[in-house]
């Protein structure tokens, strides 16, 4: 028996198509969300990679910020990759002047923490929740989690180089964040994990 979950991808800016594909290949039904009515129709939401300042601007201009905050507070499962991680952080370091987040997760995230594009890189990460095979993690002008509250479960840390030990994947109940972009690698295990979180939350509600 399977519950069919509909997962939205916030589609104001960013790599929306890659997330839609990854969700569908990870066994979920996926749709874009740009309006309040579309937000109301989904059981879970992905905030994609992109430019967090632009996303912040657009969710405010198109009056999505408050509805998003309300649904997150009410327990909507949300997965944020890169810019999406920034959007879900309660506290932000190195944001642009006036930049706001949606919040929801008890973390301090540092924007562009690894540096500029020249410092963008890929490496393997070992994430127990995803099984034995390492995940190819692609970091693009990526943020990291600088502080995590007591209810936050750390899923992955950088394993090599000067940033070794920095938190790059975490979960707090229904909220999941990664600094990296699983959607550009063809490995859909992170999206499958998120789809499981969404299905679990649907079961709890019914």
């Amino acid at each position: 028996m399977t519950t069919t979950a509909t997962i939205g991808v916030l589609a104001v800016q960013g790599d929306v198509r890659e997330h839609l594909q990854a969700l569908e290949r990870g066994g979920a039904r996926a749709t874009t969300v740009r309006r309040r009515s579309e937000l109301e129709a989904v059981d879970g939401l992905v905030v994609p990679g992109g430019e967090s300042t632009t996303m912040d601007k657009l969710v405010r201009v198109f009056e999505l910020q408050q509805p998003l905050r309300e649904r997150i507070a009410a327990g909507l499962p949300v997965y944020g990759s890169c810019a999406g991680m920034i959007m879900l952080a309660d506290r932000l370091a190195d944001g642009a002047p006036g930049q706001q987040t949606l919040g929801g997760m008890d973390i301090l995230v540092r924007r562009n923490a690894f540096g500029r594009q020249l410092d963008s890189f890929e490496e393997d990460l070992h994430i127990r929740e995803l099984g034995g095979e390492p995940v190819r993690a692609v970091f693009i002008r990526a943020p990291w989690v600088e502080e995590a509250g007591p209810t936050v479960e750390v899923l992955a840390r950088v394993e090599h180089g000067p940033a070794t030990g920095r938190i790059v994947a975490a979960r707090q109940r229904n909220l999941l964040v990664t600094s990296f972009h699983p959607e550009v690698t063809g490995d859909h295990r992170v999206h499958r994990l998120f789809a499981d979180i969404v299905r679990e939350s649907l079961r709890e509600r019914s």
């Binding site: 589609a11 104001v12 800016q13 960013g14 790599d15 929306v16 198509r17 890659e18 990679g49 992109g50 430019e51 632009t54 890169c82 810019a83 594009q117 020249l118 410092d119 963008s120 890189f121 890929e122 490496e123 692609v138 970091f139 693009i140 002008r141 972009h181 550009v184 690698t185």
Partner: peptide, 20 residues
């Protein structure tokens, strides 16, 4: 194929600009 300057990192950067 690993570290900085990979094809995925370069093309991926442009993916993040989409819709902008």
């Amino acid at each position: 194929t690993s570290g900085t300057g990979t094809t995925r990192v370069k093309r991926g950067m442009a993916e993040m600009l989409k819709g902008g």
